[in-house]
Amino acid sequence: MSDAFFYIFATLTLASAILVVANRNAVNSAVFMIVSFLGMASLFVLLEAYFLAVIQVLVYAGAVIVLFLFIIMLLDVKGGDRQKFRPVTAIATLAAAALLFTGVGVLYQAPSLAVAPPADPGVGASLKDFGALLFTRYLLPMQVTGFLLLIAMIGVIVLSKRFDASKQGPTA
């Protein structure tokens, strides 16, 4: 039963990821990316990481995609690519993808990975443990992350200011 769910959501995630890459229209790519992120959130639920599934939907399928769509429509990019890449690019891509697929295949057949999960209830399911871990063992990374968000906010404000070519530095 849950095996079927895994295959359904994995197929959904991978198929919409392919459509993200293959679509000529950037808006369609962004919309297929929502589907891909929702499939990923479903896989998180199957892995009993409920909090991360909620975060995935809120942050990725919500905020990030809205930002992407906003920028796509703001820039109003007409048409797609010219789909005219040089042969060396295509060859390099094929070689690298084949290498990566081989690595995945080797990983897939590794006997040490063909294990069943521990039977205890989901480790990611308990929000209390999650919060306790964040504020004890991972307190420093937590604060660094908060500071990183502040830096990102300041950086975006500076980048978004209009630059006047006649003057040195940003003008308001």
């Binding site: 095996d3 991978l14 990821a17 390099a92």
Partner: peptide
């Protein structure tokens, strides 16, 4: 839950997703 789905299934899905994204980074021009 996860009666027969073992870890390598998830690793395979993650790997394929990574490859798809990688191809997109290399081949797209937008």
């Amino acid at each position: 839950v996860i009666a027969t789905i073992s870890l390598n299934h998830y690793i395979a899905v993650a790997g394929m997703l990574f490859v798809i994204g990688f191809i997109g980074v290399l081949l797209r021009q937008n």
